[in-house]
Design a protein around this nucleic acid. Structure first.
Length: 420
RNA sequence: GCGGGCUUAGCUCAGUCGGUUAGAGCGCCAGGUUGUGGCCCUGGAGGUCGUGGGUUCGAGACCCAUAGCUCGCCCCA
């Protein structure tokens, strides 16, 4: 077989697909509870959208974006993330206006594309769910975004994660800090790692969470954002911390937590899991108060998060001990003789209309083989239909747990099985 | 993009120093009398040993290349 799924892509097969469905259902459920409505946007956009929002210098845009020119000569990009698209759609359709109001939007299992080296928990096509809360500037909004993410994990029974929190200040304090940081780092240029020398040009903030020990030593003496926050920044951050404490959500402050996308300001956060390898971020998000205006909309505060579905699947399979939910059947019909087919499919159809999950053999196999399959599907009842039953207008009902069986009339079989 | 490891049956893996027709467990299929599951027993199907070159009388084992996966860096969900 010489045809394969492209590198960094994955087929989602049963039984894993059931886990995906479970996650999607959980996200839909939480969204309903919080009053968020679903948005779906195109998988490709004009490339300039991401250059302007994510940042032309970021690795995501400069190195990892799937770019192509369409037949009309337009430069397009497969979306590497969703915030930019949601903001574009919100501006385009006037979901954000100058009036005091906010939009609560969520997306579910949405595919994203980044040309990266694949690793466990890192695919070239990967999927995210997340929310964008547009129009709310208060710390209460930040809290809600975090609460939403936690609610999804809680609903799925997963709690082995860690909430990391930081603030980057408002747009101008962030900029002043950034300039001072770059000055400081340039002063120490000689001792920086090669990676960080490059980052100094592309994304200096990320040098702060470099894993290189030499970098870390330099970073230890770097200007801290705390010294650049203005009064309202500090107030906002203090308020959020107090709200989290009141909601009994544990967190740690990570002064060096920055995010890779240019548009973040004030609150940034990440949920990480020790069940994952080096790609340990389950979800990440933050505030992006300047983005909507930057893309041509009215000045509008906003906050959101994005969570990786593949990583959640990894972590959940681990949690469930690799055991996926067994496929379940209510009733298995054993066709003992070919003559019973017509009556058999009629009964199957009647039972399905009554809401039973009904299976029967499609391979013309022996009764023994049919029974074996029935057992494997975990069915509660088996109905045996052969020439004997046909002649009598009856069917044999077998209970798989006790092995007991009896002959019952074919009429009203659904009602009979509802009260076994 | 950089460095390391791995790749043998549907799945998880053995395979010695290079030596006949490449193995196990699980799974699958069929039997173990009359029309009946699990447990057990017997038998069976299933592999161009990731791919392409090379070394050799002889390669699943050695060498080179390439692809995929994986671990770390990078990046980030």
């Amino acid at each position: 077989m010489d045809l394969k799924a492209p590198r960094g892509t994955k087929d989602i097969l049963p039984p894993e697909s059931a886990l995906w469905k479970e996650i999607e259902t959980a996200v839909d459920g939480v969204a309903a509870l919080f009053g968020y409505e679903e948005i779906r946007t195109p998988m490709f956009e004009q490339a300039s959208l991401f250059k302007r929002s994510v940042g032309e210098e970021t690795d995501i845009v400069s190195k990892e974006m799937y770019l192509f020119t369409d037949k009309g000569g337009e430069e397009m990009a497969l979306r590497p993330e969703l915030t930019a698209s949601v903001v574009r759609a919100a501006i385009e359709h006037n979901l954000v206006t100058k009036q005091a109001s906010c939009s609560r939007l969520y997306y579910n299992s949405a595919p994203m594309f980044r040309y990266e080296r694949p690793q466990m928990g890192r695919q070239r096509q990967f999927h995210q769910f997340g929310i964008e809360l547009l129009g709310a500037s208060s710390a209460l909004a930040d809290l809600q975004v975090i609460e939403f993410a936690l609610a999804v994990y809680k609903k799925l029974g997963f709690s082995n994660f860690h909430l990391k929190l930081n603030t980057l200040g408002n747009l101008s304090s962030r900029e002043r800090w950034r300039e001072e940081l770059v000055k400081y780092l340039q002063f120490n240029l000689e001792t920086l790692s090669e990676d960080s020398k490059r980052r100094l040009e592309t994304n200096p903030l990320r040098i702060l969470d470099s894993k290189n020990p030499a970098d870390q030593a330099i970073v230890a003496g770097a200007p801290e954002i705390t010294d650049y926050l203005d009064e309202s920044d500090s107030e906002h951050f203090d308020e959020l911390k107090a709200l989290l404490a009141a909601a009994k959500i544990p967190f740690t402050i990570e002064p060096h937590l920055v995010r890779g996308l240019d548009y973040y300001n004030r609150t940034v956060f990440e949920l990480t899991s020790s069940d994952l390898g080096s790609q340990d971020a389950l979800c990440g998000g933050g505030r992006y108060d300047g983005l909507i205006e930057k893309l041509g909309g009215p000045p509008t505060p906003a906050v959101g998060f994005a969570a990786g579905v593949e990583r959640l699947v990894l972590v959940l399979s681990k949690l469930r001990g690799g055991e996926m939910a067994a496929k379940k059947t209510d009733i298995y019909i054993v066709l003992a003789d070919k003559g019973g087919r017509e009556v058999g499919i009629e009964i199957a159809s009647e039972l399905r209309n009554a809401g039973f999950r009904v299976l029967f053999d499609l391979l013309d196999r022996s009764i023994k083989a049919q029974m074996r399959e029935a057992d494997k599907t975990g069915t509660r009842f088996v109905l045996v239909l052969g020439n004997d039953e046909l002649a009598a207008g009856e069917i044999t009902l077998k209970r798989m747990d006790t092995g007991a069986q009896e002959r019952i009339p074919q009429q009203n079989i659904a009602a009979r099985l509802k009260n076994p």
